[in-house]
């Protein structure tokens, strides 16, 4: 019916090498900024390189930053991650602030997250702690030895107390019991 599975792969949530369980490691390995020194489309990236790139590389010592000035070619960011993903992004005619935001996205991702649709938003190695459900989990164990049909298990047990029963209980309560008689004596 749908052909989305042909161009949009689906995957479960995964993190490479138990990242975060012990120590957390930034997943971005290297980032290459390719730009033109004179063309107008690279203005944003040139401003970024002049103003914010050094701070970026100082704050992320684990990321290798490459600069590739290329004439007559459009500006591009290529990020490579520790799990081998390669993300190619064109920054043609993007402003300095936009590029800063995209750099932040590339830095905090753990690979090409947008390449696949997530099937579920959770992943666990231990789906059951108290034991998986079986049909006997919340059943009365006496059913094992009962001969069915049995009115004990078949009759409705969630009915509210009827008026007659209520009156009878009130009567029982107000009766003078033997204890009261003895106290009276």
């Amino acid at each position: 019916m749908s052909n989305k599975n042909l161009f949009l792969k689906s995957a479960f949530v995964r993190a490479p090498l138990q990242n975060g369980v012990g120590r957390y490691v930034c997943q971005l390995q290297r980032i290459v900024l390719k730009f033109c020194k004179s063309h107008g489309a690279s203005r944003g990236i040139r401003d970024f390189i002049e103003q914010d790139l050094v701070d970026f590389s100082r704050q992320n010592p684990g990321v290798v930053v490459y600069l590739k000035p290329r004439r007559h070619r459009g500006p591009v960011l290529v990020a490579e991650y520790l799990n081998g993903d390669r993300v190619w992004m064109s920054v043609h005619n993007k402003t300095h602030s936009e590029i800063t935001k995209w750099m932040e996205v590339l830095r905090t991702q753990q690979g090409d997250v947008a390449g696949a649709r997530l099937k579920k938003y959770q992943y666990t190695d231990y789906p059951s702690v108290q034991g998986p459900w079986t049909p006997f989990t919340f059943k009365d164990p006496e059913l094992n030895v009962a001969t069915l049909p049995d009115p004990k298990f078949g009759a409705n047990n969630r009915l509210s107390v009827s008026a007659t029963e209520k009156l009878r209980l009130m009567f029982e309560k107000q009766k003078i019991s033997e204890k009261d008689m003895k106290i009276g004596e």
Binding site: A15, T108, Q109, Q110, A114, A116, L118
Partner: peptide, 11 residues
């Protein structure tokens, strides 16, 4: 918990 990644979903 630890935050591992912050990215954008698929389009």
């Amino acid at each position: 918990a630890t935050i591992i990644s912050k990215g954008l979903s698929h389009t």
